[in-house]
Design a protein around this nucleic acid. Structure first.
Length: 169
DNA sequence: ATCTTAACTGTGT
DNA sequence: ACACAGTTAAGAT
């Protein structure tokens, strides 16, 4: 079985995301607005397996963007350190409309002091939205930060009906 | 209530 | 070894 990486566009009301697949599953997901991936493969050229995954990705992505719970999920083949993977695994447990703090995540993986490292892991998350890094707020329910457009975090949380403390405005 | 400072951990250079 | 990060809790103002 040869190793392959495939990029496919995902059209959503928010723009065109780009999904990247490895031989194991969905490996990366990028926000719209980025450079148009000219390397995007033709949907017909990819294996049936990837097409199935991609269908699940589209379904899940659109659902979450709409503020709903994702029904279908493609296999996630993110690569990273063990620490990061354990963090992302925890993030997947947060259902729509719910939030957790960085401290709670750290505690859940047995390293309650590694709150800052958790933040780093979230920022390194290769599959935003599907891995709900946006559902993680600071300890006192403040919005916290976000690598990339902070607008996305606010917007997604708002769509899920999450109330967070807005320190300004 | 807001600001400042110090601690703590994983990761990249 | 050093600096930084999507934090936090405690102390000062």
């Amino acid at each position: 079985m040869k190793e392959y990486f495939v990029e496919l566009p995902v059209s959503t009301p928010d723009g065109e995301f780009t999904a990247r697949y490895s031989e194991k599953g969905l490996a990366e997901l990028n926000f719209p607005g980025g450079r148009t991936s000219s390397r995007a493969a033709n949907a017909d050229a990819v294996s049936p397996q990837v097409r199935v995954w991609h269908r699940a990705t589209e379904s899940a992505l659109k659902a979450i963007l709409a503020g709903a719970e994702a029904q279908k999920f493609p296999p996630l083949a993110f690569s990273g350190t063990e620490f990061q993977k354990s963090v992302w695994k925890q993030l997947l447990k947060i259902s729509s409309g719910q939030t957790k703090s960085y401290g709670e995540i750290a505690k859940a993986i047995g390293k309650p002091r590694a709150v800052r490292a958790v933040g780093g892991a979230c920022g390194a998350n290769p599959i935003p939205v599907l891995v709900p890094c946006h559902r993680v707020l600071a300890a006192n329910k403040k919005i916290g930060g976000f690598s990339g457009r902070l607008d996305w975090k606010r917007s997604l949380l708002a769509r899920e009906g999450v109330k967070f403390r807005r320190d300004k405005f």
